[in-house]
Design a protein around this nucleic acid. Structure first.
Lengths: 149, 149
DNA sequence: CCCACTAGACAACCAGGTTGACCATATTCT
DNA sequence: AGAATATGGTCAACCTGGTTGTCTAGTGGG
């Protein structure tokens, strides 16, 4: 029988691939998962590049590259930090918010299809089970999302 | 609430990190997940480098690099193909089989800890649920494991 | 007023893939 | 049989997405 981690990886990829395919059909920019995570993070709180790196679990330099791309593509812009002249807040543009909304819909479509395939209840169990495990392993301070991507 | 794919990724990483940490404590070679997948594959069937690449979902060149490493480290060796002078079978050495056995034990330890944390029944539901989803998406011919790693 | 610390940029590097070209052997077609 | 085509394996150049290390300018506690 397949080891559980293998199943996790394969399922993650299966869902991610479908997400990507459907996005490509619409003809959107080739955003990677990390970009999506950044959007979600920025929606929740004002953040600097350093904050983003921390959240993703990568160096600030890696985070800066990602932010640069998003900036060039118009999903995000930098504005001066009111109290710290070194720092810049990274904020979503309208284009960024629209993308996030679209992506969220797509994700919930996929999740719904998964529910249809294996049963809503099973899906719920998976969700709460995995969350409980993460809680068990990491306690309150969950680490960045780091790899996989 | 966290999207399911995020939970999958985080859980995969959490388990993988623990696996890696414990392996490092024993002082074993720095094998990556891909190597483990190769072992598991070789145990199941005789295979060439090309077969391995196919199974992993990477190019044969990438597979060749992996096989080279494993060869240098003594986990694997190449023997001539009986019917095709171009080809070579890649086979596990004793060291390779020992590693696999050790790793399998470690994985099942981790799985048991997961069961202890969230309940055996929940874990079973997760396992069968994910397997069912993959079945639903891919049908019989599951693709390579490709990324994540 | 110093001194330790931090945000961000720049550069060099690395790992783990990719594509493309090639040789030798296998296979298929006529 | 012989020619055309396909396949296993290797080599080499390149790409992507990270890393470390260094620097500047600004911050903030004693």
């Amino acid at each position: 029988m397949e080891p559980v981690p293998m199943l996790l990886a394969m399922t993650y990829r299966a869902m991610g691939d479908q997400f990507h395919d459907r996005l490509a059909q619409i003809g959107l920019e080739p955003l990677r998962p990390a970009h999506g995570y950044v959007f979600r993070f920025l929606k929740a709180k004002r953040a600097t590049t350093v904050d983003i790196g921390q959240h993703l679990g990568v160096t600030k330099q890696a985070a800066a590259k990602i932010v640069n791309e998003l900036d060039e593509w118009g999903y995000v812009l930098r504005e001066p930090h009111p109290a710290d002249k070194r720092a810049q807040y990274v904020t979503l543009t309208t284009k960024g918010r629209d993308y996030l909304k679209f992506a969220d819909n797509l994700w919930s479509d996929l999740e719904q299809e998964m529910a249809d395939a294996i049963g809503q209840q099973t899906l719920d169990t998976i969700r709460t089970g995995l969350a409980a495990y993460l809680q068990h392993v990491h306690g309150e301070d969950q680490p960045g999302l780091r790899p996989v991507w």
